[in-house]
Simulated assay, not measured.
Amino acid sequence: MGKYTREELEEALQIVSSVISRCEKNKPKFVEGTSQHTLLKNRIKAIYISKSLITDEISRRG
C-alpha cells in the first residue's frame, strides 16, 4: 500500500468505518438464512478485513 499517503489512508479508514456502521445497523432488517443476510454478513466481514489492513498500514508508517 506504499502508493497512498497517510492522509489518504486515514480518510479511507474513516469512510470504511462509516460503511461498517451503516451495514451493522441494517443487519437486523434481514432474516438470517436469506441471501440478503448472507451477502450483508460477507460484505461486513470483507470491510472489517479492509479496515484491519488500512489500520496496519497506518501503524506501520508510524
Rank of each mutant, 00 (worst) to 15 (best):
N42Q: 11
P28H: 01
K27S: 07
R43C: 11
S50N: 06
H37L: 02
K29T: 03
S35W: 11
I49D: 01
K25W: 09
S59G: 04
S18N: 14
I54M: 01
T34C: 10
N42Y: 06
T55K: 04
Q36G: 02
V16L: 15
L9D: 10
Q36S: 13
L13D: 12
I54N: 00
R61W: 03
K29V: 08
G2K: 14
Y4D: 03
K27I: 08
S35I: 06
K3F: 13
L53S: 03
T34D: 05
A12W: 09
E11V: 07
R43N: 07
R22V: 15
S52K: 05
S17Q: 15
R22H: 12
R43V: 11
P28S: 02
S21N: 12
L9E: 12
Q14T: 12
N26A: 13
S35M: 13
L13N: 14
R61A: 02
P28E: 05
Y4K: 14
V31M: 08
S18L: 14
C23R: 12
S18E: 15
V16M: 11
V16R: 02
I47D: 00
T34N: 04
G62V: 00
S35D: 15
M1V: 08
A12T: 05
K3E: 13
R60P: 06
M1Q: 04
L40S: 00
C23M: 14
S50W: 03
S35K: 15
E10A: 00
I44C: 00
M1Y: 07
I58R: 06
G62M: 05
V19E: 10
A46Y: 00
I44Y: 00
V31F: 03
T38V: 03
V19D: 13
Y4E: 05
A12R: 14
S52Q: 09
I54D: 03
R61S: 03
M1C: 10
V16W: 05
I47Q: 00
I54G: 02
R22C: 11
A12E: 15
E8G: 07
R6Q: 11
F30N: 00
L39N: 08
R43T: 13
R43A: 10
R43M: 10
L13M: 14
R61T: 01
